[in-house]
Design a protein around this nucleic acid. Structure first.
Length: 293
DNA sequence: GGTAGACCTGGACGC
DNA sequence: GCGTCCAGGTCTACC
């Protein structure tokens, strides 16, 4: 199955893919030589499909393996559009960025959209697995979860989609601790999977929510394992940019950029970006730091 | 409302 | 090869 998706311009697939570390986490993969983004997705119909997404003049072309009917086609269009933030109007950000030399790179490279997983559940869980661990630990935990609980592609059983809430809800805390090596995060992951699976927590509704950012943040913070940093990160993924995901990297980077390397706190980071209003999260994210990393 | 300490893992380091 | 220390956010108990 082949699908063409139109995306609001300007748009750069490469910039979306490289917007953050998500592309390094399965079931994403990216071959920069060919410019093809791969993703394995478990569809609501129950089928597991593989997408090969490439750029076109007006958006993207999606070559699909593992899905056949019209219902699945429509679902894939919707999910890929969400993953690439196709519907987002970034003109406000570019207008603001035009007057700031440190955001020239963002404008030139058409940065601004942030790569998302097909489901909010996957993004919340992955965000949970970024906290209090090195990036290598996040990669390891995501890999293990997919290997143990992922949904295999019919055409190639070695290739799996991210586990569904139902699959994880049927595991146990001991299994998540000992086999998946999630450590103290195991009960948080299990609770997330169970509340989503039971319908108590409707994460996918956040894709179209009319809640204010404040209300949305309050709901995200109510999820065990999601604190201030993780909630701000998720708000960015949901297209709300008025909170900054302040982690240890942010403290170091802001210190080097504005405070001559002196130790800074969370309030000082927030003060630096306050003037950028509702776009401050994106400004923080795509700022051309002098000492990047 | 603010803060200290526990949580868990893997990697770096010294012996 | 073994033991120790450290980095990384969030939660809970306590003040």
């Amino acid at each position: 199955m082949d699908i063409e998706i139109a995306i609001k311009q300007p748009f750069s697939l490469t910039s979306v893919v490289n917007s953050h570390g998500w592309v390094q986490l399965r079931p994403f993969s990216w071959v920069s030589d060919t410019g093809i983004l791969r993703y394995i997705d478990k569809l609501p119909t129950g089928s597991t499909a593989e997408y090969e997404i490439s750029a076109t003049e007006t958006g993207v072309h999606v070559s699909v393996l593992g899905a056949e009917n019209a219902q699945e086609r429509s679902s894939i269009e919707e999910r890929v559009s969400w993953m690439l933030a196709a519907e987002q109007d970034m003109s406000g950000f570019y207008k603001l960025a035009a007057g700031e030399p440190k955001l020239n790179r963002a404008v030139t490279n058409v940065q601004g959209r942030i790569l998302r997983s097909a489901t909010v559940f996957e993004d919340v869980l992955k965000t949970m697995l970024t906290t209090n661990t090195a990036w290598s630990g996040t990669i390891r935990m995501v890999n293990t979860l997919i290997d143990l609980y992922g949904n295999p592609l019919q055409e190639d059983a070695a290739v799996c989609a991210f586990p569904t809430p139902t699959r994880l809800a049927n595991s146990s805390e001991a299994e998540l601790r000992e086999r998946a090596r999630l450590g103290y995060r195991a009960p948080y992951v299990l609770e997330l999977a169970r509340t989503v699976d039971s319908g108590e927590l409707e994460l996918e509704a956040y894709k179209q929510t009319t809640l204010s950012t404040q209300e949305l943040r309050t709901q995200l913070l109510a999820i065990k394992g999601i604190g201030a940093y993780a909630a701000a990160n998720l708000l960015m993924l949901l297209g709300r940019y008025d909170y900054i995901p302040i982690d240890s990297w942010a403290l170091k980077t802001v210190s080097a950029e504005w405070f001559n390397g002196e130790t800074v706190n969370k309030d000082q980071v927030e003060q630096v970006f306050e003037r950028w209003g509702d776009w401050r999260g994106l400004v923080y994210w795509f700022w051309d730091y002098s000492n990047d990393g």
